[in-house]
Design a binder for these strands. Structure first.
Length: 179
DNA sequence: GCCAACGTTGGC
DNA sequence: GCCAACGTTGGC
């Protein structure tokens, strides 16, 4: 065995990017307080193919999640969560009568995927949509784009850092250090 | 409540 | 395969 040659025969490290996400949730349906209470939850019911691909292919255990309240007052990133289970078939799609039932999805060939997330922290200060719109570093952020309806979406490392620093004026370093 | 921006559906 | 109609999302 010639160890020096190992690198040449090993597949290149898959690019793990992005490692950060934003999940929208209507607080009337499921809020950051619900997640704090539950500590961990399943993220089922996403019925959009682009989002499905992210759930199935791109989200990995350990990734960071900005928890965003949509259809809320105020609209804001309100906390941080972590992906704790890679994408797996959304079995609710197979439950006849369930609100997420979808005959298109076959257990042999699942149409929809979900992940599990766990609670990490509530923001010290909610990062309102308004404050994000005022922040230059977030000018390109997907959630702020008109018509960006994806309920789960990628966040760049720079955007992640910016939002965490806004939401955790005192312990940003601690939170950043968890990912 | 309004409506823009999508995504999906279905007739052709 | 096109595209009009329709439904949904979600900010405003």
């Amino acid at each position: 065995m010639v160890f020096g040659d190992c690198r040449a025969i090993v597949a290149p490290m898959p690019e793990k990017s992005p490692r950060f996400w934003l999940f929208k949730s209507e607080p009337d349906v499921y809020s950051i307080d619900d997640l704090q209470r539950d500590k961990r939850t399943t993220w089922e019911g996403v019925r959009n193919y682009q989002a499905r691909n992210l759930l199935r292919d791109d989200m990995k255990r350990g990734d960071g999640v900005l928890f965003y309240h949509s259809n809320a007052k105020p609209l804001a990133v309100v906390g941080v969560a972590k992906i704790v289970k890679n994408g797996y078939p959304d079995h609710f799609a197979w439950e006849q009568g369930h609100k997420y039932f979808d005959p298109k999805s076959d257990p042999e060939d699942p149409a929809w995927y979900m992940v599990d997330v766990s609670f990490v922290a509530k923001c010290e200060a909610e990062v309102t949509r308004e404050s994000m719109q005022d922040e230059k570093a977030l000018a390109e952020m997907m959630v702020l784009r008109r018509g960006a309806r994806l309920s789960v979406q990628p966040v760049t490392p720079a955007e992640w850092r910016t939002v965490i620093e806004m939401g955790f004026p005192k312990k940003a370093k601690t939170v950043l250090g968890k990912f």
